[in-house]
Design a protein around this nucleic acid. Sequence first.
DNA 1: TTTCAACTCCCCATAAATGGTGAGGGGGCG
DNA 2: CGCCCCCTCACCATTTATGGGGAGTTGAAA
Lengths: 237, 237
Amino acid sequence: MRPKREWFIERLDLVKTLDDLNAAIFDLRDRFGVDHLIYHSVNSTGEQYAALTYDKAWVDHYVRQDYARLDPVVQGCYRRFHPVDWKQLDWTAKPTRLFLGEAVENGVGNQGYSVPIRGPSGQFALFTINHRANDDSWRLYRDEHLADLILLAHFINQKALEIERGSDAIEVQKLSPREIDALTLLATGMNRAQAADTLAISEHTLRVYIESARFKLGATNTTHAVARALAHGLLVI
Amino acid sequence: MRPKREWFIERLDLVKTLDDLNAAIFDLRDRFGVDHLIYHSVNSTGEQYAALTYDKAWVDHYVRQDYARLDPVVQGCYRRFHPVDWKQLDWTAKPTRLFLGEAVENGVGNQGYSVPIRGPSGQFALFTINHRANDDSWRLYRDEHLADLILLAHFINQKALEIERGSDAIEVQKLSPREIDALTLLATGMNRAQAADTLAISEHTLRVYIESARFKLGATNTTHAVARALAHGLLVI
DNA sequence: TTTCAACTCCCCATAAATGGTGAGGGGGCG
DNA sequence: CGCCCCCTCACCATTTATGGGGAGTTGAAA
């Protein structure tokens, strides 16, 4: 049986502030022997946080140009379940190739591996390692560190969220089962008549549930109520 | 440096079918030395899959009674980001206590640890270990196996998804940037007038984007389009 | 016993969404 | 060069959603 706790979990335990986390990212990059380590997250209110080792001028330029809109790492991971090697991403479009050229000029390596992480209220975080290496040595490195990278992604994210708030349980007004039924059927594309039929109630009754849910969610209209319920993990569709 | 690959990753590599995965779940339960191991998932179309070691009669009863609606493990993990020990869940409500009594009578242990896993299209999976133990020895066990359990959750989920389909990249009709802008603003609660103002376009133009997005997503109305876009990870709100 | 929440149902008037149709300019790709 | 997609704007008629109001029954908890 191997040691109880990974060395990087011990290292992250020392982290108490976001500044600590930024410093830890540099330590972890050095200990993992890669050129860059990046943790970037979007929380449920759209606020972003990044702890990374790229050059600050490149990061500012990336944000100013809104490169996330076309960066295959962000776009590709956003639609994938599992960790992905950058070779599996689509770099063929012309704006993407131009972007990649700029990135490489600014110190970004040709190899990368990214782990998407999702939370209960639509949060999305991305953990990436990046390195300049040939394909064979990169593949060896990746195979050898796969488990550690997945764990590292998980624990960095957990530590970032702990610092950001004390707990991760979502505080949301509780919807009644019928309110959830009503929003779920609307989210699956039924109109109100169909939803009322399905629940064997009148449209008037359905409307009461919709409006009550809308009020509890603090939504301005039905579309917003459905969106908030989905974002809070209250509906499965 | 420890071995390249975890023994359980090697074991899961042997899995080719869902039946293999079911068999592997029993092996893994024995090798991890717990009473039960459970993997349960809901995909983006609402279909469920479970590989678990509970008694079949109990599982059938659980499904028939729709216990997921009140099971604190399911309800609590659904709203949480991180893995959670069952002691941290809320078991105080009377129906919950009655449910727990039935569960214990049917072989479910008093200690549990669950790892929620989320996908890009609203998928939700839950990996759980369950055991009869006192608090102290359970805490020791959990601390010692924390990293392995997180990795096991990840790889079981990955294997289940691989078997279910060949790839995890989401095939969804690409929305144009303006279409995404339109749906995003509606998802944040703006009405059409406000959204048009924000984008500095007319409501007629906004409507063209909404209806085009609706068509691409195969949605029946605007609420459905927003729901599908969210479920497919196309919007950040 | 009282209170509260959940579930159930109804009406009128106004505003918004949808069905269905029309149109033009610009840029990129085959 | 032609085609296709993106971005932009408009109209009429019908259907649906919302604003705002009314009401009753049942079961659980304080």
